[in-house]
Simulated assay, not measured.
Amino acid sequence: MNTNFKALVVEETSDGTFQRSVRQWPIKKLPDHEVLINVKYSSLNYKDALSASGNKGVTKQYPHIPGIDAAGVVTESRDERFQEGDEVIVTSYDLGQNTPGGFGQFIRVPSDWIVPLPNKINLQESMLFGTAGLTAAIGIYQLQYHNIEPEDGPIVVSGATGGVGTMAVSILTTLGYEVVAVTGKKDQKTFLQDIGARAIIPREEVQDQSSKPLLSARWSGAIDTVGGVMLDTIIRQTQPHGVVSCCGNIAGHELHTNVYPFILRGVTLSGIDSGNCAMSLRKKLWNKLASSWKPKSLEKISRICSLDELNKEIDTILEGKQVGRVIVSLEN
């Protein structure tokens, strides 16, 4: 085995700025965890872009290799549950935050972070889902746990062209739900229709800043990836006994709302934490994503870039211009 591997490394300069470069990194600098994995594919998430731009709330120490998602092949293992040659997935936990992540050709991680690759899905397809797909799947699982069925009415998805939003629209459509997609990108109407959205509405329709405690009920459930005023509006527009699953804070981390949707309509607000999702549920949802929840037109949702092309994609997501999913190939 080579002693070095190719990685996107983020470094802090003497003047406090950060720079990214693709270069060789020593395997010996990886942490001493149980399993060494040769990464074949990763994917780009907003948290990766924050880490790659020096956000100390995500990554405390630099130099660092971001990448909260990784799919690859076990190279070495001190845990008998995993053998050399096993195909595996690692997402979330501390990967890519303070543990060297999937934007390098090797990772060494605790064995308790690892999901065996399910049948009916390959390594590349697993990274089309990645953390974004798992996050969307947890939200949809919560809708179903609270008995929200397709016949109960539409599901609204905010931030619908982003990673989690795209996955939510696609999976919900696959499961027979009517999806209302919310976006600020007017030029992406065709994309959203192609992945299954029945209706597309501008984000202004779900940014009500009035003091009305309740608004006209429009949907039986929601996957909110934005937060802030949009989440408050969605809650006030949810039908009686509806469920709102939330995972984002791009519009703000504060939520200013009132109790009436909860005590007069019985609305449930459910948070999504994919980072520390229990392994039992994680495996269950990965098996669903590989089978009955797997969208039919995966090629419409994603594009592939190399490690050398990743810098441009990071800038795109930071500018709020990413559409769909970006898979990162580390095979070269």
Rank of each mutant, 00 (worst) to 15 (best):
Q19S: 14
K283M: 12
K28N: 13
Q209P: 10
E205S: 11
G252H: 04
I314L: 13
P100D: 10
T183I: 04
E34R: 01
G54E: 07
L318F: 04
E84K: 15
K40T: 10
I314G: 07
V156S: 09
F262L: 09
A251P: 06
E319V: 12
L134E: 12
L215W: 04
S43M: 01
E299M: 08
L8S: 05
Y46W: 01
K60R: 13
Q237P: 12
C247A: 13
W113T: 04
G96N: 08
N276P: 09
I121T: 07
G104M: 06
Y46E: 04
T99R: 08
E313V: 08
T3C: 11
P26F: 01
K300V: 07
P118S: 04
F106Q: 09
V169K: 01
P63E: 08
P118I: 04
P150W: 00
Q322L: 12
F82S: 09
I200V: 15
L128R: 02
G165Q: 03
S216E: 15
N45D: 07
I234T: 06
N258P: 04
T161M: 06
I327V: 15
N122R: 02
Y93R: 15
I155W: 00
E84G: 10
R236I: 10
R325K: 07
A137F: 01
G271L: 12
V58W: 03
G85I: 09
N119K: 13
E204L: 13
D224T: 08
A52E: 06
Y62C: 11
I304M: 13
R265F: 04
D152K: 00
A49V: 07
N258V: 12
F18T: 10
I155F: 00
G176H: 02
V39N: 04
S43D: 04
V9A: 03
P66V: 08
K189R: 08
S216M: 13
T183H: 01
C305R: 06
T131Q: 06
S245H: 02
E331L: 14
N122F: 02
A70P: 12
I27M: 03
I327R: 00
L95F: 00
E309T: 03
S170L: 10
H146A: 05
R236L: 06
